[in-house]
Design a binder for these strands. Sequence first.
DNA 1: AATGAATGAGGTTTCATTCAT
DNA 2: TATGAATGAAACCTCATTCAT
Lengths: 222, 222, 222, 222
Amino acid sequence: MRKKLTEEKQLEILEAGIAAFAEGGFHAASMAEIARRAGISVGVLYKYYANKEDFFRACLRHSLAALERVLGEVTAREEKLLTYAARLLKELRDFSREHPSHIRLYHQITNAGGAAARRLAEEVEGAAARLYTEVIAKAQAAGEVRRDMDPRLLAFFFDNLLMMLQFSCSCGYYRSRLALYWGGAAEEEQVAEELLKFLESAFTLERNQIDHRPKAGGRGNV
Amino acid sequence: MRKKLTEEKQLEILEAGIAAFAEGGFHAASMAEIARRAGISVGVLYKYYANKEDFFRACLRHSLAALERVLGEVTAREEKLLTYAARLLKELRDFSREHPSHIRLYHQITNAGGAAARRLAEEVEGAAARLYTEVIAKAQAAGEVRRDMDPRLLAFFFDNLLMMLQFSCSCGYYRSRLALYWGGAAEEEQVAEELLKFLESAFTLERNQIDHRPKAGGRGNV
Amino acid sequence: MRKKLTEEKQLEILEAGIAAFAEGGFHAASMAEIARRAGISVGVLYKYYANKEDFFRACLRHSLAALERVLGEVTAREEKLLTYAARLLKELRDFSREHPSHIRLYHQITNAGGAAARRLAEEVEGAAARLYTEVIAKAQAAGEVRRDMDPRLLAFFFDNLLMMLQFSCSCGYYRSRLALYWGGAAEEEQVAEELLKFLESAFTLERNQIDHRPKAGGRGNV
Amino acid sequence: MRKKLTEEKQLEILEAGIAAFAEGGFHAASMAEIARRAGISVGVLYKYYANKEDFFRACLRHSLAALERVLGEVTAREEKLLTYAARLLKELRDFSREHPSHIRLYHQITNAGGAAARRLAEEVEGAAARLYTEVIAKAQAAGEVRRDMDPRLLAFFFDNLLMMLQFSCSCGYYRSRLALYWGGAAEEEQVAEELLKFLESAFTLERNQIDHRPKAGGRGNV
DNA sequence: AATGAATGAGGTTTCATTCAT
DNA sequence: TATGAATGAAACCTCATTCAT
């Protein structure tokens, strides 16, 4: 009989699916088009996946698994908060560049609503949320991070900035938007670098420490 | 586009479209369903709009115009950066609550890619990007904002946090995500309050000012 | 708007469906083909019926309703058993000729098995079974019909012969089969006539009355 | 058709096909499912049979051959009509019980129309039709059977009752129907027994012999 | 002018058939 | 040779769009 699809081909199919679903969501993608892009016949899709929905979920799982693998590698090491943040930024940037469709698919699912959204959010973000919060709480205890803010919100804002950075690397609209702010030839390395500085300050300075006298060369405060 | 339907009815149609498109994107929405929701016949839809795409663009325009109106009102007054940010947060939060579909539709279109995305980004974000950057640059000049970061990136990170806050108020997934971080009964007022503190620090403290000695009660710095 | 399908057109659609399903059963018929035969588009089929199964059931209902109407008319009058049987034969023969597809569809569903078959049998045959049995029991009480057989089985054999007669008038195979027995130019009138004679004897003669002496011109008995 | 599979396996394949086709007709059965049931691969099916139609015909031939073998055995002996009928009933009942799928497949094909139906009817029923007619004609000549009816029609009605009895033993719908008439625990032996009585009378009593005076305990005749 | 039924292209899914292994 | 995965035509079904009323 004909050889079963190689592992490689199976991945290619998933990638084709991810790319298609990332484009315009579940409804916009066509199974026939996906098959064509993956260089197979529709029949194969339906031999491996019960239906479009099932295939979509497989793509999602595959995509999120890859993302989680990246996060897992970064979080395996014990480190100072900002060192950790720096590595996270780098890894996510690399991942976003290599697999923009994965990030775009992830962005797609954030459209979802209802119970499915809740389940998905817990599945995808739960671990990260807890990890970030914990790391930040520890850093607060160690006096490395400001104590006048709830660690959960610090973690939340931190993750928000990470998400937007990923989107800015991967999704057409957000890329254009970054270009609008930063100029056409966006060097993402520098953006990441600057984001670290931004975070460093945000994590450090307590409100009551803010000096309200104008700085040299300027008058007045924020 | 003739002029027979009342202004009010026209708005109702657009709102129905926005709600439908916000749900699952362009392809998931059905013209018949939209007409039904708006209490009109499909025929009317096609009298006023050439086709689905055309109607979608009208919904988008309407939705973004509303958003821009809000931004416009906020930015009309000359103010200090953080006062301005505070007002912006409040207005966007209110808008997100009253018109979550608008925000969700906005989120939908950020999936787009290609030239359309570029055009859209410029149209939607261009003014804000320039405004934020300018305000921040002025604040830097006045010594109210750190000078060791590019005002464009400061503006960019600022806007990123704003966008995520809007999504967190409006879109199912992001709402669940906020709940994950912050607990079930997320009081968005407090989140906005804390975001201001976060921004204040991020905008203020320069990296070389960061005290690397551990704070009281903790040892070491970030 | 376009005019809704006339009652007449709706019947035409059902007839097209009945003809198609009668041909080779549920699976052999194609919705597109049915639409084409009925002179409509597939869309109409799916506006009136949720899906193929639903449409099939509607065809069945329509077909059986027509059959039941015929039976109902016949059974409305109080009559002697054989007069009644004669009229039944005539009406069924006429119906079979005018609507052979209905009979053929009926024949199709007798393929069914399982609980659906039981339900269908009760629905279609229940009334007739009870009626025939009752009429025969009464005739037995009146001494008009042999008493050495269970009225239920007499009714059953009676109905069996009726069913086969219908099939022999409507379904290709059974028609050919009748031709095999009776010769090419099967005159169904005469068959029905003879069936009556057959039934008359079967209903009348009790076993113990059978004369075992050879009849004139023959030797030996059955 | 090559000759590599064991005789036994070939029969198993045919039986699987017969069971599948009997279920819902030609179109409802799937080649893959048949292969699975027979414990072979589809490839084998297509090595032995050119296509689905060809395989269907082979199943039919096999099924009818079995039926004809039974009839052949019964008709080999010279006997009195009713003894013969009794044996026929018994054999067909046994066959229906052991191979209900064969009967159900036979029932399936009686849907067919056109020239194929004619050919099939001749092939399947021709011999029986001629045999029955001949036996009955002889019995008439011997004075054992009424002479006021055409032997061909007597044979036809006789065969009709036989067919229905077979269906009533094998096909879901007809079984339910019998239960409707005769009660849940249909004992087919008794039905066959009673059918013989029914036939005996039908074959014997001539119309002009029918006594039109009411029988004891009743008034009037049929 | 508004309606919404009808249209039919196009999407999803199945399955008879092929053919590389 | 037997296998059963791959193929793709054809079936079911949906919905953007048209247009008779």
